[in-house]
Nucleic acid binder design. Structure first.
Lengths: 408, 408
DNA sequence: AAAAATTATTTTTTATGCTGAAATAATATA
DNA sequence: TATATTATTTCAGCATAAAAAATAATTTTT
């Protein structure tokens, strides 16, 4: 059928080559031309041509040869000269808006952190204008800290909880906004002189893993985020899969029980309604002699003290979570699943009992199960993911511009 | 990152152009060069070049101009001459191995049915050799019917229930084979002088929809098959998504109930264990005063007669199915879901009550829900899907050969 | 009926990008 | 110092695609 594939003609073709080479360089950190050629299947001659363009555009730089032996094991011959992304080419920001704080991270074009900053907020929805003001403020503060100016920023990635259509920078709904269906991207773009790139926060964790994590090169993997709610990022063929309306991957609201527990989304039987913080607290409170419990650590203490009722709450959450994970595998059969949560306290979601349950709920074939890795990191990683997303978007833009200038 | 994308050099680029043009022709049925150019974004000059290659290779043919007015509304000017796939270029077979019969369909290269043939079998697993013999036999018979010779066949698509790795033509498990992990593709290729292309049968229904259905052009959709079991085919960006080991999309074995009903796969809580034929009969039999019930029509009769217990069985199945569908939407957010079942008797899986339940279980955004269509067709459609798969594979092969010859 | 207008297709020309081969550069080793 | 080795660059040639021009096949107008 009529593929969406672009014509390979002229600029397009070269543009894709440039992208490919640039990605290979960013991916590798530092890499010699000859290795780029090997990895990308582009001839050395073309790599020379493209890299010299990228060099003169200031996007990459050569790296002074260190004394290290050539990675190819060669002992003599002309030494390879490594290339790397030019860190000071552009200043990029990533922002994660969480429940109680906004975290901003400034990175250079290599992805190295320059400075970060957190700003506490009330966990209340605000008007879009207030959100924009807030974002401007945290960016301003971060820039100040770093001794840079707001206008130095080349692009900002913004991660929000909720339902986001990343292709349109559109917010269907977010717990942080007081209304639905906000053209937040447009408002932000109008308010500040650099482009914003919005996405669901779980997708951004996937981006962070892809650009900075140890999954490099992996073409298909799935990230499950465990925070207040449960989110998901799907990477298929190196790309984030978002669905038609941009609101797929709603793992937290897949149903694990017919007419089950009430979820904060108003529906019943959502996974979140069994494993989210509030779900655990809700159950525990009913059983508590001392009244309502509002924090998870108290609960954890009880479990460690051997309280069987509290333990049963966590056990059920674990079993439900296992069911959800198994469904991911049954649907997607990915290479790798990364569980990304902030706190150790979530151990109960990936202990051996849960994994055993997963193994027993997955379609059985004589091929190894997808690997399941656990990464524990906090808001800063989310902000880093947002920055990664912006880095990618900005470099794509710059390279496209390069092609356009070249044509002119 | 290092994309898997091939170098654009020489043959590769042209090959992709050829594929694109050929696909556009097959897709459209009959289409003029100028329209191919428009649809594929390839210049008219290139379309002329490519089509003349395809013409001289015998893959397509010009179609005598009918008196119809030009579809562009043009009343004068040189009339466009339509191109179409040359039906008699190759003979293709599609085979569906079902529980109680094997269905084979011969089609020409345009996808037009030449003849079909069904062969009853015992619903018992057989040895791979016996399966190969059976397949040879049905192909032979079909060819005889059509007045063709076995050796005329250019490729065979084969759809099996079970866990198939289509990329390797490998069968992890199938209810029709008496052992696991069979290199069935290799055995078949060795036994007959044309290539076989194996796939899970639900994927083939997706293929059939893609090539022959009214979803043409749709880039992302999902097919749910309701037969003995419940299957699924996922189309993402025009391609069937299969997962890492080739055994994703196991919708029937996603879990809808923690430690729920026992499934024939040995696990508990699978969707199939609530909506499959055997699941319904199992429940009904317990309640039946007249002993074990073995057929669905009996059950349907009871419902129509107003038996509340039997009705409750169907109702629960419907609710469970709705939950499963909602999960598909929550995970994938597709453009379109096609429910493909053989019998009217399955109405209870897509009546208004079920759809209402789906709507209430899907993450709520102010954008229209994916369309859900119901297609009722039987084994012949499955065989047609198998044939479609083979057609695609064979034409890809022939076009690749064309490129190779051209180079020489 | 001839000329003009219109549309589709083909041919010709032009430009681009990629690669292989050759040349050059930069090092280690003999 | 010469030689071997490896990396990178230069260069010539080729393939492809698109733009422009030419041609073909019609209908409409004169």
């Amino acid at each position: 059928m009529p593929q969406s594939k672009k014509s390979h003609h002229g600029q397009d073709q070269r543009e894709s080559g440039r992208q490919q080479v640039f990605d290979a360089i960013r991916q590798a950190g530092r890499i010699a031309r000859i290795d780029i050629a090997r990895e990308t299947q582009v001839s050395p001659a073309t790599v020379t041509a493209i890299t010299s363009e990228l060099l003169s555009a200031g996007l990459i730089s050569e790296v002074a040869p260190d004394g290290e032996p050539s990675p190819s094991g060669a002992k003599r011959g002309r030494p390879r000269v490594a290339l790397k992304v030019r860190g000071d080419a552009y200043l990029i920001a990533g922002i994660k808006v969480a429940d109680r704080q906004v975290t901003v991270l400034l990175v250079d074009f290599e992805g190295r952190s320059i400075c970060d900053h957190s700003h506490p907020i009330e966990p209340l929805p605000v008007a879009p204008d207030a959100m924009v003001a807030l974002i401007r403020e945290v960016l301003q503060t971060a820039c100040q800290k770093a001794g840079r100016d707001l206008s130095d920023i080349a692009g900002v990635g913004l991660g929000l909880a909720g339902l986001i259509d990343a292709t349109r920078n559109f917010v269907y709904w977010s717990p942080n906004l007081d209304r639905r269906n906000v053209e937040l991207g447009e408002i932000l773009d109008a308010a500040m002189p650099f482009p914003f790139f919005l996405d669901n926060d779980a997708n951004l964790v996937a981006k962070a893993e892809q650009l900075f994590g140890d999954v490099k090169g992996t073409s298909d993997f799935i990230v499950v985020t465990i925070e207040q709610g449960v989110g998901m990022g799907i990477v298929i063929d190196h790309q984030i899969y978002r669905g038609e309306r941009g609101c797929g991957a709603e793992f937290g609201h897949t149903k694990v029980q017919l007419d089950g527990a009430l979820c904060r989304c108003g529906q019943r039987g959502c996974l979140e309604a069994y494993v989210g913080d509030y779900a655990l607290l809700r159950e525990a409170s009913i059983h508590s002699p001392t009244g309502v419990i509002t924090d998870l650590p108290t609960l954890m203490t009880r479990v460690k003290a051997g309280d069987p009722t509290t333990k049963s709450i966590f056990d059920r959450a674990g079993r439900m979570f296992a069911m959800g994970l198994a469904n991911i595998i049954n649907f997607f059969d990915p290479e790798l699943i990364i569980l990304s949560g902030e706190q150790m306290s979530y151990n109960f979601l990936y202990d051996e009992a849960v994994m055993e349950k997963v193994r027993g709920s997955v379609v059985q074939v004589d091929a190894p199960l997808p690997e399941i890795r656990v990464h524990k990191w906090g808001d800063l990683m989310w902000a880093k993911g947002a920055a990664a997303y912006a880095m990618e978007a900005v470099s794509a833009r710059k390279i496209r511009e390069l092609a356009a200038n070249h044509a002119a």
